[in-house]
Design a protein around this nucleic acid. Structure first.
Lengths: 366, 366
DNA sequence: TTGTAGGCGTTATCAA
DNA sequence: TTGATAACGCCTACAA
């Protein structure tokens, strides 16, 4: 019955409604909202009173029309097949939550059927649907960055890239994340630590490989090229990777994977061979996916909240001052230790992989 | 160098640019785009030529301002804890892809800190940020439905609910999905089939339970209340459920869970007890989550594309004609048989052909 | 301190 | 068949 109950009626309240009810001009109402100091305290109070009574909120489209803004930022959903970032759910949550306080909402796009991802950006830009774009799954020679840079359209990238011109980006220090994992395994006594990585040529992939080698080298363990397996993403690939590694004369006692999916594959295949994860074989992943958590997979977790906070911050700067130098940030991920790397085992004795492995190898070796 | 290369320049092209270059009035350009038959073929061609040269696209905000529309639909992200629909990723993909051809884009919202989900809807409505809302995770006495119904704001719900007034919804026939799973297990020879379900009181939960009982009864197997375990969602709950069931004098040979997470818990716990999934114990889930697929979990898959197609269809109707009776649809899910329920067993019944799907889709419209 | 006018890009209406 | 004009809701000058 209260007037506030009626704020949600079909016809939206406009600034004119407020001005009439408060007995002032629309300009004054606008000033109350945007430049309160220019309005007499008395009128200001009266107007604010009416504003709250009517539940008035300035219309975003109208505001944007005159300000040449949309107060919207765009995110083009990555194709599911190529989607390396399995944490899309959390990412969007954080992105929306951190953008909202800036008065920005997130609009989702997807390339239409038969359209390339690149083309998916063009239309929204042309119609001025958004003030800027957030990119993710960025790679070395990302065409999107070239396109957006050239067009001068504000954007920020989750992930570094090679590009002629500077652009705003935020990235997770994958090298240091993987290095943490390696150090964790070294600390548990492992000396033969394998790496399951993607083929060379991806920004985040190569970055993580570098971290692996660095951590080993710094600990005085010479990286063994035979312990580096390359494959595409996916659980099956992980399984295959472990099958290969297990056939070595002296198989590794630990595996560091550059992604949870791969790690899960390794884990499952090792389990199928009768090895106990965390005991007979230590495994770590990357991304902290739900599936990994489920299986007790130790992993490197990306600080998505922090990442999104920075992404939005940079993007707002790009929008407000496209001429300023684009900034960037590298944030450190966090190592999450679970049972797959012997969370329960304190100073565990060397995994005794021998017996089960021999059994397996006798069975499968051709 | 071509003019089409310059379409993405910073300053967007407006209808005025087109009109000047084509030597016609803006009204004519507008007509070419919105009512081509009212324009002479010759001028029409000329204008279209310029439009494509300049890569002109009408500005959404301006168009919406005058049409009192935003061409945007809203989706409030469910809180991650209560998020039963683990397929958010796919859902958003399909939603965006099916909305886009209607000229609608999807805007994401999230309740701000300290705000209830309900309050999260109010602001966007007040400022007229969107033309309508898509709800998911809908339940019996969903307050959102009361709020939106009362305010007369267009919306459509993924999920049924008890509500005084009719509203537009699309739902998956969980009962029939679970019944399919039960029939599949019956067909494989199981007679002692347990159910792991959520506590009574959730729309989709109770619906699925009903399907379980119905399928058993129809097959002449009396439902045994002792075989119905109730627990909250989550892998751990599933583990606990199987622990309880395994203590029975004669434990069930198959378990039907109302959600993948629960099924995974059952699977893992059974495995930990030395049981082989699909051989010693058959398990089925619901939702076809990636984690489930990974573990070879048989499951009931929601036809998200179809669901989203219908959601958008209904929402468009609500927006265009809020006075028309809200329609609704019940779509049949699909049973996906994997190893957890003995996919390899020869006698397992095959899933039905997809071509008959339309027969199962029952459509009510008043 | 407040009110008025113009314009943001578009479409609808009406006149030519 | 086409063109001018008036909104749509808001903000920013500038005038009072």
């Amino acid at each position: 019955m209260l007037s506030s109950d009626r704020g949600a009626e079909v016809g939206r309240t406009t600034i004119k409604d407020v001005s009439e009810r408060a007995g002032v001009s629309v300009g004054t109402v606008s000033n109350v909202l945007n430049a309160p100091q220019r309005v007499a305290p008395q009128t200001r109070e009266r107007v604010l009173q009416v504003v709250s009574e009517l539940g008035y909120r300035p219309n975003r489209a109208a505001r944007g029309l005159q300000a040449r803004r949309t107060y919207l930022i765009g995110y083009l959903l990555p194709e599911r097949e190529t989607n390396v970032n399995t944490a899309l759910d959390s990412f969007l949550h954080e992105l929306v939550s951190t953008a909202s306080p800036h008065g920005l909402e997130v609009v989702l796009f997807a390339p239409r059927a038969g359209q390339t991802a690149l083309e998916g950006y063009r239309d929204p830009i042309r119609r001025g649907d958004v003030d800027g774009f957030v990119l993710s799954e960025t790679n070395y020679d990302d065409e999107r960055i070239a396109l957006l840079s050239r067009s001068g359209f504000p954007f920020v990238s989750f992930g570094r890239s090679l590009a002629e011109d500077p652009f705003a980006w935020v990235d997770v220090d994958g090298a240091s994340g993987i290095a943490d994992a390696v150090r964790h395994l070294l600390g548990a006594g492992h000396r033969s630590i394998a790496l399951v990585a993607w083929p060379e040529g991806s920004e985040s992939g190569d970055d993580r490989v570098a971290g692996y080698r660095r951590a080993l080298t710094r600990a005085g363990v010479a990286p063994n090229p035979l312990l580096e397996v390359r494959c595409l993403n996916g659980v099956d690939q992980g399984r295959k990777a472990w099958r290969r590694l297990s056939l070595m004369d002296s198989p590794p006692t630990a595996v560091v994977a550059v992604q949870d999916q791969l790690a899960i594959g390794v884990l499952l295949e090792a389990q199928a061979m009768g090895l106990r994860p965390g005991v007979d074989l230590a495994v770590t992943g990357f991304d902290d996916t739900p599936a990994g958590a489920l299986l007790g997979l130790s992993t490197v977790r990306q600080p998505l909240r922090e990442v999104c906070r920075l992404l939005v911050e940079h993007l707002v700067h790009r929008i407000e001052d496209p001429w300023a130098d684009p900034g960037h940030d590298l944030v450190r991920p966090e190592l999450v230790i679970r049972s797959s790397s012997g969370a329960d085992v304190i100073n565990a004795p060397r995994p005794r992989a021998g017996s089960e492995l021999h059994r397996y190898r006798r069975r499968y070796r051709r």
